[in-house]
Amino acid sequence: MQLFSFNGRSPKVDPTAFVAPTATLIGDVTIEAGASVWFGAILRADDAPIVVREGANVQDGSVLHVPPGVPVDVGPGATIAHMCLIHGANIGAEALIGNHSTVLDGAVIGARSLIAAGSTVLAGTKIPDGVLVTGAPAVVKGPIAGTGAEVWINANPPYYRNLAQRYREGMKPVELGG
């Protein structure tokens, strides 16, 4: 992992977290117990903190950034899927932000809500708990309870906690050569 201090603030990573060697954490970033930050993710906390709460995961290629004074908080067990942009937003517990989605300044995503792949949540939008959201701009489609989307909400947190543990224990560099 690449860790950089900025403006007198340095990243803090719990020893039980997994941060991939190609992830980059800059400034006031906190990674809590059992959380994971995957390959190529960039978390840049210039002027406000970024916190990835216990058991949350930030997947490959995602970017988390803060505008001045607007933190990013990724709730416990939440998922930021591949290639997402989270900019100054609050992501609720066990929420799932689908691949290649964008969540902008001051948006609040409710607990156990699912933002569908490719969606854009506009600045200042408040998404309630337990709903499916899709589109650009994103709109609430209805409750998740009892739908196929609920499977993803339930399965993702334990899967990524387990996968992170497997990587902590089993990932080894490989020497190429001849």
Rank of each mutant, 00 (worst) to 15 (best):
A117V: 08
V51Q: 09
W152T: 00
G148H: 02
V58H: 12
H65W: 09
N90Y: 12
P15E: 10
D28V: 01
V66A: 10
L104E: 05
E32F: 04
G118S: 09
S119P: 02
G177Q: 08
A116D: 12
R9A: 13
M83A: 14
F4Y: 15
H87Q: 12
A56R: 05
V174N: 08
L122W: 02
L64N: 05
H87E: 11
N57I: 01
A81D: 15
A107G: 10
V29H: 12
A149E: 15
N90S: 15
A17M: 06
H82K: 01
N7H: 13
V51T: 15
K12N: 05
G110W: 08
G110V: 03
G34W: 09
R9L: 02
P11F: 14
P67C: 03
L176T: 03
G34F: 08
D129Y: 02
Y159T: 01
V52W: 10
I109K: 05
A78E: 02
L122N: 14
G178C: 01
P157C: 01
A107F: 08
V140A: 07
V58E: 11
G106K: 03
D28W: 05
W38S: 02
Q165S: 13
L104C: 07
A35T: 00
A107C: 07
T134F: 10
Y167N: 06
Q59Y: 11
P158F: 04
Q165D: 15
P128M: 03
A123Q: 15
R44V: 09
T134Q: 14
M171H: 12
K172D: 05
S10I: 00
L43R: 09
G118I: 00
G34I: 04
G88L: 01
P21C: 02
I42S: 15
L163F: 13
A33D: 15
P76I: 00
T102S: 14
C84R: 07
E169C: 00
V58M: 08
G110A: 11
P11E: 12
A149G: 05
L176D: 04
R9M: 04
S113I: 00
R166K: 13
L132S: 06
E175G: 02
T16M: 03
V139A: 14
G69E: 08
